[in-house]
């Protein structure tokens, strides 16, 4: 029975790649996929360290307003809430995309869910861009105070990550159209999904520490 090779229960994201290939090939593809994903985890963890240092810089700059505008004047919580909604929803649709890829093996469905994810990512980015412009128009530019430098650096680094995730997704659309859902394209989509979920986790830190605690202080 072909399915018995596939392991028991919900297993590691992206392990079950190919259903049509013979068992030995599938085994090999799975090992390669696991290695690729583990390597990507190492990258994500190094990224985590970058973000934690940006967070801690932000924390040490918490009171360094230098007489400039602070979180009360600059932050729009409802905008941050909508950004959270967009990013959370995109994480979910990204998960659905990987399900469509691994279980339905349908290129059209996979691309549709990733396209929705991309759309939500762009919604997030445009809201964030709008936030940045509002902040700047109120005099909250990065050079104004230590606190503003730290918050721009932190939020914009996350924004740049989301932007590169969006570009990555566009490239993967081209690759999927060109190569189909072959093992390499599948592991790349899997890594993209890991990246996307990871960015959502960073965003939890940003809205909790920067926006919510900022407005409270």
């Amino acid at each position: 029975m072909a399915q018995s090779v596939q392991g028991k229960g919900p297993s590691h994201i992206g392990i079950r790649l190919s259903n049509s290939a013979p068992a030995s090939h599938r085994e090999e593809a799975r090992t390669q996929a696991e290695e690729a994903l583990f390597g990507f985890w190492i990258f994500l963890m190094s990224d985590l360290i970058i973000f934690s240092m940006l967070f801690v810089t932000y924390a040490t700059m918490g009171h360094s307003l230098a007489g400039g505008p602070g979180p009360h004047e600059l932050f729009d919580l409802s905008s941050a809430a909508w950004e959270t909604v967009a990013l959370l929803a995109s994480s979910f649709t990204c998960g659905l995309a990987t399900l469509a890829m691994r279980y339905d093996r349908s290129l059209a469905k996979t691309l549709l869910w990733f396209a929705i994810t991309l759309f939500l990512g762009l919604v997030f980015l445009s809201l964030e861009l709008h936030d940045f412009m509002t902040m700047a128009s109120k005099g909250g530019v990065p050079s104004r105070s230590g606190w503003l430098s730290a918050s721009w650096a932190l939020i914009a680094t996350h924004g740049l990550h989301v932007t590169s995730g969006c570009i990555w997704m566009l490239i993967m659309f081209v690759q999927a159209a060109k190569f189909g859902l072959d093992p390499l394209v599948q592991t790349r989509f899997m890594r993209l999904a890991l990246f996307w979920h990871f960015l959502d986790i960073i965003w939890i830190g940003i809205f909790s520490i920067v926006y919510l605690l900022g407005v409270l202080s």
Binding site: L77, S78, A80, A81, T84, V85, L88, I204, F207, S208, L212, V215, L216
Partner: peptide, 12 residues
């Protein structure tokens, strides 16, 4: 969603 809504609602 619940864990995001709670703190946002609490603060707002």
């Amino acid at each position: 969603v619940l864990l995001s809504a709670l703190p946002f609602a609490g603060v707002m």
